[in-house]
């Protein structure tokens, strides 16, 4: 087993464990930290899969943005309610059953896809610059729409949290 594989397996393991950690812990704050670990290890996996640009975005936007926003939300809500960060579980059995069913089904059929196609090839181009060009040519419409989406999400969030005059 090459060192490359060892690193990959390592990150996969970290991602899985921290994902399960979110499920296992009953503290919202700890769950958010687990999410952060998971997202960061996924970014590492993306680098190993030669998707550097996505990996960077993952770190900057997801880990740096989403998780921070979530932690911020947690703090605000605890301040609003004045209650501890504990989370209760419900529907434990059906939830786990559904998850297991999904996992086994996906693993079974998706792994068939992995074996039926050739092994991953490697590319040696300058991926980041190519991504940039693609974004401004073939993907310019979704790109612009994504901009609109961000704008509306911002306005939506502002409208939602703004307190009413009444």
């Amino acid at each position: 087993m090459s060192s490359y594989s060892i690193i990959l397996y390592g990150f996969i393991l970290i991602a899985l464990i921290s994902a399960i950690g979110i499920l296992a812990v009953n503290n919202v704050f700890k769950a958010a930290l687990f999410l952060l670990t998971c997202l960061l290890s996924l970014a590492a996996i993306y680098v190993l899969c030669l998707a550097e640009f996505v990996a960077v975005t993952q770190i900057l936007v997801y880990a740096g943005g989403v998780v921070v926003v979530i932690i911020f939300g947690i703090m605000l809500t605890t301040k609003l309610t004045g209650k501890p960060l504990e989370v209760k579980n419900g529907n434990l059995f059906p939830g786990l059953l559904a998850a297991l069913a999904f996992a086994s089904m996906l693993v079974k059929y998706q792994s068939m896809m992995a074996t039926s196609t050739a092994e991953l090839s490697t590319m040696s181009e300058n991926l980041v610059s190519k991504t940039g060009v693609e974004l401004m040519t073939n993907y310019v419409l979704p790109f612009e729409l994504a901009g609109l989406l961000l704008l509306m999400a911002l306005i939506g969030a502002a409208v939602t949290t703004r307190s009413t005059p009444e």
């Binding site: 979704p142 729409l145 994504a146 989406l149 969030a157 409208v159």
Partner: peptide, 23 residues
Amino acid sequence: LLMVFISMEIISISSYVLAGHAN
């Protein structure tokens, strides 16, 4: 598929806000 996803999310996210707009 990407366009489907993006435009559907535009609809969805705006709809979430609209649904609660009465405040």
